[in-house]
Design a protein around this nucleic acid. Structure first.
Lengths: 352, 352
DNA sequence: AGGTACTGTGGGAGCGCTCCCACAAGTGAT
DNA sequence: ATCACTTGTGGGAGCGCTCCCACAGTACCT
């Protein structure tokens, strides 16, 4: 390797200093132009820009990061194994939204999986080294220590799907409560009266909100809520199957099912078919997520769509704002966390 | 914000200097310990490690990058839109292999999509800024300018699937030639004599090698190669359909088809069915890739498996080596590019 | 005329590390 | 005892930038 002192002398990449010399101005002025400061005269700006173009100057990120104490990078942390990431359209939609929102920014996006213990270990190191200015957290379980860790390191973070009503991080969510109401009101409007609900995992806040929406929609329509019609699931197909069996055994007279996810609905559909119930003639079925599976089910599944791509966009907007007006944690603790809730949309198909 | 001078003074992250003071040694010694240099006595090493643990020291990446002129990051560049990345198992398998090979390294992996012009623009800037030490290139077309750009910037790179026999970059590939031979020899072994080949895109080197393998296998078994049995496809299902129609029209007596991809085979299967040919009774069918589609086809498709995960691992090994013994480009040009070819495996199923 | 403000600019200091040179201390051959 | 290495260590210089202070120049009030 070349000797240390001679490293970037002539053949290497041009530096700020060289651009300054070329443009006949000082280092500070070039820096101001590069960073878009308004305190530069038009003539000077033009001269600097010409020098930049002539030399093909590109700022050295490491030097900038060191001097300015920022990295211009944010991480999308997925606390799941990679397999799930690729399997579920949720993540790719989210990534698309995030990517779009970031595309007119200098910010660089890092995708970090933290499914295994080992990966979590690496992530902890990574965050401790402050290698990103902010973190996007998706699909976090209620007892995950990650959010606390971020708070302690004072790294700005935005979470999709708050962990509880008392979420301390800035959060973006879809309107789980409203979405559930839409589903139930739709079923009521179709003349259904005995509407069951297969819930999601009860330790997921969004699942709780869907239950609330289900109950309130019934109540406000003047129906009593029969707890025999509510059966816990876990978002999985198998869970949907088991829940449906339990429901059919308890209330064979039910005429509609609202499932907390499309996959759950697919499991329920299977059991209903085996029991000889026709969909939607005997039992109407509504799912949640409007995932690919909803379109391909037989019959196509009515489902509640969450605007996932928009959520990704919103998360970036909030995170960038938080990174920009980063303040001492003290004053931060006094403000309530920012929240954003996006509307859902009922997509009607043949199953209801 | 706190004043510049006071920034990292007391509340902030510990620095090398502080660790050195704590351990009662010099800055250089701490640096040696951190970087695993052997030129440190055991006692000193222990003292430094204790200080590091007590202070919770984590090296500042930006400072290290600036001083050492490296980033400890490499990029996996995918010159495709994100959608394809998520749709094709090829990429997720590759990512798994790459991730595994990297997991006991300090290297950080960046995933960069360069499907649109805009994204390519960003990538160019990114590379010009030397923000990564090396690049992994997957799925590059023959006329892509990316490799030249990398060469000019003197950024180490490894390509999966060389663009031609004269590929100048270090490359990792599966044995397309051998894989095709396996497929054809298998069909010959099953007593088939009139074996057609639907090729891949002719501008893809791997597709050419599969054609070579097909021809040589037939020739060496003492059969003449009938060019009427070779029809160009493009790896797509539709291409497979069209090619199969052409082949059936020209040589209705064919008794086997070797397709250059599983998707192509699926298209061919469709046409064969419509023409009333039974698989494998009338026509045996073999695909390439051993993708999910092969398992789910009716009948399940015999296919040539490429060890994609291993290829990912191999790419990392080669790239890290290249990054490690980075030399002036001059001496580099004198050596031939390194190449690695991994064996394929025929997975036999009901279609042949 | 003097003050006050603002605009535009140059350049010192410093970010936290790595690299390398200098040098002390020990080891063994002559 | 001298020389020649080797091993371990400290610290200066420098990586390329940002931040900020200082200051010249101009404009506008008293």
């Amino acid at each position: 390797m070349a000797s240390h002192g001679a490293r970037g002398r002539s053949g290497g990449r041009p530096t700020l200093e060289e651009v300054a010399a070329r443009a006949g101005v000082g280092r500070g002025t070039v820096s101001r132009v590069i960073n878009g400061s308004p305190r530069v005269s038009d003539a000077t700006r033009a001269a600097v820009e010409a020098a930049v173009a002539e030399l093909g100057y590109v700022p050295n990120t490491a030097a900038r990061a060191l001097a300015a104490n920022r990295t211009d990078a944010i991480a999308l942390v997925v606390p799941e194994p990679e397999t799930r990431f690729f399997a579920e359209p949720y993540f790719s939609d989210m990534l698309r939204g995030v990517g779009a929102a970031l595309s007119d920014t200098e910010m660089q996006l890092l995708l970090i999986f933290a499914g295994s213990d080992r990966e979590r270990q690496r992530l902890a190191q990574y965050l401790a080294a402050h290698r990103v200015d902010g973190v996007l957290l998706v699909s976090v379980h209620a007892d995950d220590p990650l959010p606390d860790m971020l708070a302690q390191l004072e790294i700005p973070a935005v979470i999709s799907g708050p962990r509880s009503a008392a979420e301390t991080l800035t959060s973006v969510d879809s309107d789980n409560y409203g979405g559930a109401r839409q589903a139930v009101e739709h079923l009521l409007g179709r003349g259904r009266r005995t509407i069951a609900h297969i819930t999601g995992r009860l330790d997921v806040y969004g699942a709780q909100r869907r239950i609330d929406g289900y109950r309130d929609a019934l109540r406000e329509a003047g129906h009593a809520v029969d707890e025999l019609l509510v059966e816990p699931g876990d978002f999985s197909e198998d869970g949907g199957r088991r829940a449906m069996e339990a429901l059919l055994a308890r209330r064979p007279d039910l005429d509609a099912v609202f499932a907390a996810s499309d996959v759950t609905a697919a499991g329920a559909r299977h059991v209903l078919r085996e029991a000889g119930r026709r969909i939607p003639d005997d039992v109407a079925l509504v799912g949640y997520d409007d995932s690919a599976i909803a379109r391909h089910l037989d019959p196509p599944l009515t489902s509640v769509r969450q605007p996932i791509e928009e959520m990704g966009r919103a998360m970036i907007d909030l995170l960038l704002a938080e990174v920009a007006d980063r303040r001492p944690a003290v004053s931060r603790e006094l403000e309530p966390p920012r929240r954003m809730v996006l509307a859902t949309e009922l997509v009607e198909r043949a199953s209801s």
